[in-house]
Amino acid sequence: MASIILDKVGKIYAGGTRAVGDVSIDIRDGEFIVLVGPSGCGKSTLLRMVAGLESISEGTVRIGDRVVNDIEPADRDIAMVFQNYALYPHMSVRQNLAYGLKNRGTPRADIDRRVADAAAILQIGPYLDRKPRALSGGQRQRVAMGRAIVREPAAFLFDEPLSNLDAKLRVTMRLEIKDLQRRLRTTSIYVTHDQLEAMTLADRLVVLNGGRIEQIGTPLDVYRRPASTFVAGFIGSPAMNLIPSRAVPNLPGTAHAGIVGIRPEDLAVDPSGPIALDVIAVEELGAQRLVHGRTNGEMLTVTMPAGDAVPDRLQLACRPGATHLFHAETGQRID
């Protein structure tokens, strides 16, 4: 159990390329932090710096009350879950779980007890004597988490642990991870590119772009008040409409902003509404439908309840107070 404090952390590779810059995050004890961003945004690099698998070029990382910049991964009191599980293929599940403990000289009886506990928590007891190759993807994922749990570390680090699983299993495992973390109350950093995973798991989200932090906040804060056009477009599905304010001249209170953001679900059909939409395409999602169209030449997406046929032209109104205003050049939020 420990807090993790990143202070102006940066990573510059040997070639001079900067992967991460000026990242400061204050992670509280027991908190579940999700680093989210598109591929290449530096989220994995950041996690690997906390793990000690990448050297830290700038700034300091503290785990608990120690600066760990120059401490070996094994001595940082962390456990990591990898995307491809990284189970030792020649060892049984039991040996996989016990390996880290054995290397640390944990007494035999203690190892047995901890492995049994972890197996019970993750329901992998029946597979303890199998080799990883004889397990399904979900079971391997559980073993990988088990390997982290038995260590009883100060922090869990997850590097896209669910991206190798199929969609259905991903949802189940997502819930299990959340539940597990809630029970163990171990500080966790979780990296993903999936904004839905990020929203559902996180106590707080850290949205990264180009190696820098765009926004830190609870999922709902980030969703309700995205700090920039990048966050606005990244968090939420379907993505927020981001259009120049001149395209929606009749929308009240937006004239001074460069870019207006409106979530598709905040728009509704209203014959007297200020926005006229020429419908281009309709995507049926079952319970609802996405209507794509143009207004004054700008693409706009609207969420509508499923039902009658969609006419070629719609008048739309925006839910009061649901607009987000951003600066035209910097993309920063201005309201």
Binding site: A51, G52, L53, E72, P73, A74, D75, I78, A79, M80, F82, A86, L87, Y88, Y99, G100, N103, R104, R147
Partner: peptide, 9 residues
Amino acid sequence: TEAARIDGA
């Protein structure tokens, strides 16, 4: 290799 490093090998 990295997992082994974290596992203290």
